[in-house]
Design a protein around this nucleic acid. Sequence first.
DNA 1: CCTTGAACCTGGGCGC
DNA 2: TGCGCCCAGGTTCAAG
Length: 290
Amino acid sequence: MPELPEVETVRRGLAPVMEDATIFAVEQRRPDLRFPFPEDFASRLEGRRIVSVGRRAKFLVIHLDRDPVLIAHLGMSGSFRIHGGADENIPGGFHHERSKIAAHDHVVFHLERDGQAHRIVYNDPRRFGFMAFAEARDLESHPFLATLGIEPTGNALDGAVLAALLAGRRSPLKAALLDQKLIAGLGNIYVCEALWRAGLSPKRLAGTVSGQRAARLADAIRAVITDAIAAGGSSLRDHQLTDGSLGYFQHSFSVYGREGEACRREGCLGTVKRIVQSGRSTFYCSVCQR
DNA sequence: CCTTGAACCTGGGCGC
DNA sequence: TGCGCCCAGGTTCAAG
C-alpha cells in the first residue's frame, strides 16, 4: 500500500480536480470493501460540493459543504484514477453505460467542475481499502483517526519526542515504528529505509533508543518521508498515481527489496539481509545497523 | 496497558 | 501448461 508518501501523492493528484467540484452521481459497484460501505453511501454524497481533499496518516479526508466527511483508506492495493475533462459528459448528459469499468473498479465518483465532467474511479483488487463517513465536528474522535499518533512530516517529530514515544517499549524497534499509535503514516518500506539511514538495527529494543540515536532516527524518518513525497512516492505492484503514471522513489531504496545486494553505505562491506518480524519482511544491513 | 498473531483478499512469480 | 506455495504497501480484532 500506499504508505504516507503515496497517499500524499494521491491527495495532491486528486485535489485540483475534486476541490470545488460537485458530486452529481456515485456508482457503488459492490456492498463492501474491507468493511461494508456506510448506509446510503451514494445518496449522501450526491449533490454535495467538495471543499477540500486532506490527509491524516494514510487516510484521505474529504470535506464536503456539509456532513458527512468522507474518509478513505487505500489498504494494500487501492488506487484512484482520474478520467475525463472536456470529452466527458456533463450532468443531464450523464449515462451509466459510458463508464468503462475495469476489473476491481469498485466506486465511480462523477463530478462536475467549471462546466466540465470528471470521473474519479476507485480500484482495489485486494479490497483491503475502505470508505467511511464521519461527522465534521467529531472527526478527530472517529474510531479510525482517534488513536493515530504524530505525523512524521514537519518538524514536530524530533529526537526528544521520539525518545519519549519509545521509552519503556519492549518490542523491537521495527515494530514500534510501524505502530500507528506512536507515529502515524510509516509503513514497512519507509521504516526499513529510515532505520538504514539512521544506522539502527530493526531488532534493537525500542526502549533503548534515546539521546543522539533518537535524534538521528527522527532526522532519518523525516528525511525519507520528505524525499519520497518529492519523488512522487514509490511504485510497487499495482500502486499508481492518479494519472496512471508511476512514482520514482523505489529507485532510491537503500535496503527494501535488495536482499543479497551489497550495502550501499560508503565504506560498509555488509550485505542486505531479509528477516521476518511480526510476520513481515525486514530488510537491513547487520554490519552497519546496530 | 503492551505485544503478538491471525484474519481479511487477489494476483504475480517461482519451482516442480 | 498447470498446480501449489510464497509473497505483497495495512488495519482490526482476539488472546496471551
